[in-house]
Amino acid sequence: MSAIDQKNEPIISLRNVTKIFGDKTIINNVSLDIFRGETFVIMGCSGSGKSTLLRLITGALRPDNGNVLIRGKDIARISVDELEEVKRSFGMLFQYSALLDSLTVEENIALPLREHTKLADDIIKIIIKLKLSLVGLRGYESHYPSQISGGMKKRVGLARAIALDPDIVFYDEPTSGLDPVVGGAIDKLIKDLSTKLTITSVVITHDMQSVFGIADRIAMVHKGEIVEIGTRDEIKNSSNATIQQFIHGSPVGPIDFFKEDIGIAEALGL
């Protein structure tokens, strides 16, 4: 295990969190701790509830039950102003980058700086140059998001996410839709940022190569519940059939790919 100090207070902790949409329980009684400086990967199939879990942590959704604590503060119980304060210490990389189309690369990265700081324009320009060189995109300042590739957009999104020097960065499917080389480069960036800037990273993904490349610890989510939390090796050598099926991408196992609990005759009402 790398630079994690388990004796640390957890920076993010979920206590018995439950989220219900309509009559469906999406997240069921989840508890987990994420420590300062570690790269924590939440993996699971599509529809397993991992994106909902991330939205609960970032405060975009409120839990129906349980508590989400960021640095010991329950984000469902603090005022709007305090929540904004907490959100300012976050950075988030979205699945489709979510750059503002109407702004250039430079203006996109400048956005959180202009909104939340009183820095002078020339200092903001310097910060943008620094952040862009961290993600290897110097010289693209005046391009619009529509003029650059998907991988570059992700990197700009990353530069924007770290613009305010956050201590927690969330990554929603950082490598999805990218070719393996660019995906690998993004993984390396995530790893670099967390070691160079001691950022706590929370990554949501189902890309196994990425999982074992960057994770300090891994949580496997299935049907809204945590199957197991462990280090890279613990998960790799886990005896849990669900985890082994997920790692090896096997179509047979406890994760049911086809819904076969209703017979065809029954479905047709015969």
């Binding site: 304060e85 959100k87 988030m92 699945q95 750059l99 503002l100 189309d101 959180p112």
Partner: peptide
């Protein structure tokens, strides 16, 4: 902007 997560991105950036 809404369907491409840009609005959500603004909210996450506390804007």
């Amino acid at each position: 902007m809404k369907v491409t997560e840009q609005i959500e991105a603004l909210e996450t950036m506390a804007i």
